[in-house]
Design a protein around this nucleic acid. Sequence first.
DNA 1: TGACAAAGTGTACGGGATACACTATATTTT
DNA 2: AAAATATAGTGTATCCCGTACACTTTGTCA
Lengths: 233, 233
Amino acid sequence: MPATSNPNGHFTGHAIAVDVVLLTILGGTLKLLLVKREQAPYRGAWALPGGLVSPEESVDDAALRELQEETNIGNIYLEQLYTFGEPNRDPRGRVITVAYYALVNWQQFQLKARQRVTEASWFPVKRLPPLAFDHRRIVDYALERLRNKINYTTVGFQLLSRQFTLTELQGSYEVILGQRLDKRNFRRKMLQLGILKGTRDFKANGRQRPARLYTFTEPKVIKLQEKGIIVPY
Amino acid sequence: MPATSNPNGHFTGHAIAVDVVLLTILGGTLKLLLVKREQAPYRGAWALPGGLVSPEESVDDAALRELQEETNIGNIYLEQLYTFGEPNRDPRGRVITVAYYALVNWQQFQLKARQRVTEASWFPVKRLPPLAFDHRRIVDYALERLRNKINYTTVGFQLLSRQFTLTELQGSYEVILGQRLDKRNFRRKMLQLGILKGTRDFKANGRQRPARLYTFTEPKVIKLQEKGIIVPY
DNA sequence: TGACAAAGTGTACGGGATACACTATATTTT
DNA sequence: AAAATATAGTGTATCCCGTACACTTTGTCA
């Protein structure tokens, strides 16, 4: 039991953990990064990357550090999701966890993952194995938040490379929302938002007409987030 | 210092606190409930109601309990806001705080608040005194979230009594958004949402024509939250 | 009974969400 | 070199909703 009191009785010790819901698109489906637990409890079970917060670091930093340590991925923007504070969510005793989530482009991540410490793997969110602790609940919460958030922010872009085609962008929205979108309406909407800039490059995808590559123009995003982006359909 | 490790070295103790941003409308302005600190640090300063989480209770329960203890207000819905986890936000040592917020109807609260333990008072959010710890930052964050949330949820209703006039409802939206709304558009929008039910009662407000009282029809709200409520203007 | 003050009501305009199908073109195959 | 392929890329009509805007109604109180 971790709970302790210091001499003056004003503080009670709790263990604080962080857990990271990291999502990507791979093969046209949304996938979640899981690591295999090497210690009890739930030894051998799949779990979210994460671990305990050290006394000297911020909670945000702990999330980044754990992700770095367990999956060798770093330098990404983690958004705080929710804090889960039920007394019995960890069989070892009282552990409160602060959950984070992020979307990453799989290709960029793949490179960094070569020399991993922990066994890690991507699972389609529609077919997850049994998860340790209450991690399933955390994942469900993250997915719900994501589907909501894609309607008024630019999270859909985090899944793509720096340059991307409009078809790829539409695909990331479709995977997150779980529904098909109309090509003409989607393109008109995205282009008129003014956050995309066409490049002179094209992407050849086999034996069809190559598609123009676009980039994301950061500066205009802030204003949009105030107004709220509404995606077609 | 509260930080401790247990024998096996796997757990590190942290103090977990909760803080509650409780808002109401009083005299046409948005007000925040603050309590006067009776102990060091920041003794005598105004602070958010809150305190440390006990080992046996959930974080949500702790927020409700602290609010009950310090202000004698209970039985309200607290929404989790954000977890603040910087290492040096409390001069006593490492304290991570989970912030909550809620809107209440002042008249209902007033009754309950008569017999308070701690000195507490409502302050207009535009003229707050210096606050203890990083509570100012927490308040600012709550206000930002609230202004955002009122556009797609029904938080504006929590400020009112069970029966209310459309003018009162509009007033609560105006106070939160900090801008005037058009009466005709506001009424049309609210009525067509289908979440209001007119009663046969009227509220006489002096020497004008009395206004019809409405109630809020809970069941339809869930569907609306999926679609998102857009308030006129 | 007349003044008061807030309650309550309608319409015109513009923009954007929606529905819907064909042409353009680089690549690969024959 | 011509034909087949498969995705890229494009326009229009409709409808709903957000917006702007001002006068009439009515219970109360002097």
